[in-house]
Design a protein around this nucleic acid. Structure first.
Lengths: 309, 309
DNA sequence: GATGCTTACGATACCCGTAAAGATA
DNA sequence: TATCTTTACGGGTATCGTAAGCATC
C-alpha cells in the first residue's frame, strides 16, 4: 500500500470511475492507474470496485468503507504538508478562499486589505465559485476557507461560523411607480424583476418568500453579481433585488433604493472550513479579521473531526 | 512521503531516538532509517528531531505536532488491513486480547469457550500483561481488546466499558486465629499478608484502604496470580487476599475464606479499546459475550476518535 | 469505430543493505 | 574504545510510460 494507490482510489470515485480521467487528473499514465488498483486489491484480498467486464461502475461494500478511511488519510497527508510549511515558512505560503462574487466584491475587500498588510508574503487566492462548488472545493481540500450565505451550513463535514448579517435591497429608477406606493410583496411581484441566479446571494430566500405568499413573480433576468443587475435596472428592464451591501449611494445615483428587510428578512453569511483540515496560523488570522469573535481558539474547538462508524 | 518513513518516525520515538534500535524493530538497515528521516525532513523543509551533533535527543515542536498526525495515519493504515480481512475472510483471522492473569484464569474461560464455539476459525491470542503494558499494547495497535481492573479507565485514547464487578476475599488456613475474631482492617494488618503485585488485580485498592486507615501491613510476599498466593497461604506463610472469583470451594479445601468486601469494597473490571481502532465483527461479538449489554452498536457509538488540536 | 481497460516490456528512479568513515559518550 | 550516525556505492525492485491487444458501448 502506498499513497499513490490511495490517491488513485479517491480520484477514481471523483472521476466517476473513468480510469483514463483519473490518470489525467493525477498526471500519470492510465496503465499505471490500472495496475495500482489491481495491486492494491490483490494486497488487500478484496475487490474494491464493481466491474462490468472491463468497465468500472462503482464501489463495492468494502470499497465504500475503505474510501472513508482513505479520505481521512489523504486529508492527514495534506495536513502534514501544511503543518510543515507552517514551521518552515512562518508567514509565507498560500491561502485559498472560496467565495461567491458578492462576498468577494462587497464584504471581503476590507478584510483582504487588512490581511495583506499583516501577511504581505502570503499568496492569497480568491477562488470565485457557486455555493455548491465552494462546498466541493472545501471537501476536496482545494480551498482552506469558504465564505457564502448558502449551502455551507448543510454539510456535516464542514464547520461554519456566522460572519455577518445583511438583507436585500430593492432598486428601481428614481421615477419608477414602485416608489409611489407602499412596499408589499404583491406590489413587487407586479413588476418584472432582475436579481441573482438560483442558489446565489439569498436567491433561495427570495424565491421561498414569494412562494409562501402564493406569488410567482416574473424574473426577467438573473445574474451572478449586483453590478450586472444594476446595469439592467438602469436600462429599465425591471426592478432589481440585490444585497444591501451592494448598494452604494455615492455611485448608484441612477437608481433609488428601498430596504427589503421587511419583506425578505435578514440573511447570514457564514465562514466554513472542513473538519480535520489543518489551517495555517495566518488562516486563523484571516477568520479573526472577518469577525473578532472568531479567534483561533474558538475556531479550533469547533474543528474536531466527525465521528467514525 | 511514504509509509516506511512514517513508520520510522513513530518507531524512533518509541525506541527513544536510537536509530539502531529503530532499524532492528522494523527489520531494516540502520542506514536506511537514517536516510529516510533525512529525506522526509528535506521534503517537508523542517527538522523533526532535536539533534546534538549526530545523536538524536527528541522531537522538535513541528515534530511533535507531526507525530500525532502520523500516529493517526498509521492507525488508519492498520484499519484498512483489518477492514479488508473483514470482507475477505469473514469469520477468520486473529483476535488479540490483552489481559491480566486473573482475568485470563478466572473470568475469561467461559467467554473464550463460547467464542471459540461461535468462531472456530478465529485465532485467539490471549496476551498476558500488566495493566500498564496492556494499555501500551492497545495504544500501539498490538492488541484489539484489553481487559483489566486497573489503568485502562485513565487513558483518554482508550474507551472502556464495565465488564463485571467483584471483590476481594481473605483466605487463611482453617485453624488460623483470624477466623476466631471479628474481621477488621486492624486485625488483618496484624498478620503477615500474601497478595498481588503492585498494580495488579486491585492491589491499588488494598494499599489505599490500609493507608487511609493509617495502617502499614506487612506484605511478606506478592505474586501475579492467586494460585501462587494460595500455595503460600497453605504453607502458612501468611493470610492471603485474593480476588473472590479465584476462590473455589471445591478445590481450595485447605484454606478457609472470609469475604473482604466490607473492608475493601468492590472492584470493576473493564473492557477497553483504542479510539479509532477498527474492530472485526467477531471482536464485537467477543465483547458482547462478555457483557450482553455491550452490543456492537453501543460500543461503536463510544468509539469516535478523540478531538484534534 | 470510438472509448476504455489490461497486459507486456523497457527505462528509470527508488529503496535497501553493506561497508567505510566520522562523531559522540 | 564502544556506540551511534552519516555518507558512499552497488544490486535489486518497484514504478512509470509507451505501445499493443482486447472488451465494451
Amino acid at each position: 500500500m502506498n499513497f499513490q494507490q490511495l490517491r488513485i482510489i479517491r480520484e477514481t470515485v471523483r472521476q466517476n470511475f473513468n480510469l483514463t480521467e483519473v490518470a489525467n487528473a493525477l498526471f500519470t499514465s492510465q496503465s499505471g492507474v490500472s495496475k495500482h488498483i489491481k495491486d492494491l486489491e490483490d494486497e488487500l484480498g478484496v475487490e474494491l470496485f464493481v466491474r462490468k467486464g472491463k468497465r468500472f461502475l462503482g464501489l463495492t461494500d468494502p470499497g465504500k468503507e475503505l474510501l472513508t478511511i482513505v479520505e481521512r488519510m489523504l486529508l492527514d497527508a495534506g495536513n502534514i504538508k501544511r503543518l510543515a510549511e507552517q514551521f518552515s515558512l512562518k508567514d509565507e505560503g498560500q491561502l485559498t478562499i472560496a467565495t461567491t462574487h458578492t462576498q468577494a466584491r462587497y464584504a471581503l475587500p476590507q478584510v483582504v486589505t487588512a490581511f495583506k498588510k499583516a501577511f504581505p508574503k502570503v499568496h492569497l487566492v480568491l477562488h470565485q465559485a457557486s455555493p455548491e462548488e465552494l462546498v466541493r472545493l472545501l471537501l476536496e481540500g482545494e480551498a482552506d476557507i469558504g465564505i457564502a450565505t448558502e449551502a455551507v451550513a448543510d454539510e456535516t463535514e464542514l464547520v461554519s461560523f456566522p460572519y455577518y448579517s445583511w438583507h436585500h435591497s430593492i432598486i428601481a429608477p428614481p421615477e419608477h411607480p414602485l416608489h409611489q406606493q407602499p412596499l408589499t410583496l404583491e406590489a413587487l411581484a407586479d413588476y418584472p424583476l432582475v436579481t441573482y441566479h438560483q442558489g446565489f446571494t439569498g436567491r433561495t430566500r427570495i424565491d421561498r418568500t414569494f412562494a409562501e405568499a402564493g406569488l410567482s413573480p416574473d424574473i426577467v433576468m438573473s445574474a451572478l453579481d449586483a453590478d450586472v443587475i444594476k446595469t439592467y435596472v438602469e436600462l429599465e428592464l425591471g426592478v432589481g433585488i440585490i444585497a444591501s451591501m451592494a448598494y452604494n449611494p455615492e455611485r448608484d445615483r441612477r437608481v433609488k433604493v428601498v430596504e427589503g428587510e421587511p419583506l425578505f428578512g435578514h440573511q447570514t453569511t457564514r465562514i466554513a472550513i472542513r473538519r480535520g483540515h489543518y489551517l495555517r496560523s495566518y488562516a486563523y488570522h484571516f477568520i479573526e479579521l472577518c469577525s473578532a469573535a472568531l479567534d483561533e481558539q474558538t475556531v479550533r474547538q469547533s474543528l474536531s473531526p466527525v465521528e467514525l462508524a
